[in-house]
């Protein structure tokens, strides 16, 4: 597949928490419509990388460009960036005191100042797409983990983000709920969304990714097309990592 327009560019990104680097000289590009899956062992900096892109972590040096514009310098800018970048977290952080529909409408109505009625119609369409229209008035507490994650995806999607970040969204789910969430993500990918996904689901990574980035100890150890990466990893480190998924 050919991708032409660069949507996100990360250049020489460096991050540490004071006791050694967490990310070191990380550079890559994400093109419009591309799905990139980041994999790597625990503690390799995958989540930190996503959090840097969404401004939840301050970067030490290097830079991030979205749509050709440098971001991350001033705080006000982050609010704009976050509207263009949707993020779904591992721990399905819905707002427990609001119903599903209110959770979804908070962003479009309060941040984007969109008309509530129109936003609600759109929310209903999205809920239907993820199979949760009947849960519109439910509270997060009444939903299963998988359902919560699907609502969280709708909550991010309704902002019409240019880029979606998924941070191990199935890691905290019961096994039988993983599939329903991955299916939604796969459908999004097919629909042309630009996505940056951190996951430990290797089969899914292989099916959804246009490109794999393998992160190890804060550095990009290897990147490649999914078939090439999974079948013939170039680095010894990637071989060992992939072996741990085989019984």
């Amino acid at each position: 597949m050919d991708f032409e327009e660069v949507l996100l560019e990360v250049r020489h990104l460096h991050k540490d928490y004071g006791n050694g680097p967490v990310l070191e000289d990380v550079s890559f590009q994400v093109h419009k419509g591309e799905v990139i899956v980041i994999i790597g062992p625990s503690g390799c900096g995958k989540s930190t990388l996503l959090r840097c892109i969404n401004g939840l972590e301050e970067i030490v040096s290097g830079g991030i460009w979205l749509d050709g514009e440098a971001v991350g310098k001033d705080k006000a800018k982050w609010r704009e960036v976050r509207q263009k970048v949707g993020m779904v977290f591992q721990n399905y952080d819905l707002f427990p005191h609001m119903t599903v529909i209110d959770n979804i409408l908070l962003g479009p109505v309060k941040v984007q100042k969109r008309e509530k009625k129109k936003a609600e119609e759109e929310a209903e369409k999205l809920l239907e797409r993820v199979g949760l229209l009947d849960k519109k008035k439910a509270y997060p507490r009444q939903l299963s983990g998988g359902q919560k994650q699907r609502v969280a995806i709708v909550q991010a999607l309704i902002m019409k983000p240019e880029l979606m970040l998924f941070d191990e969204v199935t890691a905290a789910l019961d096994p039988e709920m993983v599939r329903e969430v991955l299916d939604v993500m796969l459908e999004l990918a097919k629909g042309g969304s630009t996505m940056l996904i951190v996951t430990h689901e290797m089969q899914f990574a292989r099916a959804v990714a246009d490109r794999i980035i393998f992160l190890d100890e804060g550095r990009i150890a290897e990147t490649g097309l999914p078939e090439a990466f999974f079948d013939q990893p170039k680095t010894e480190r990637a071989c060992r990592f992939l072996d741990t998924f085989l019984f």
Binding site: G55, R82, F95, A156, M159
Partner: peptide, 21 residues
């Protein structure tokens, strides 16, 4: 929970809005 603040931030809410809503 701390995650609530981050969930709000990632939607683009201001810290005032996060407090209020």
């Amino acid at each position: 929970e701390k995650g609530q603040m981050e969930a709000g931030l990632s939607l683009g809410l201001s810290s005032g809005q996060i407090m209020r809503y």
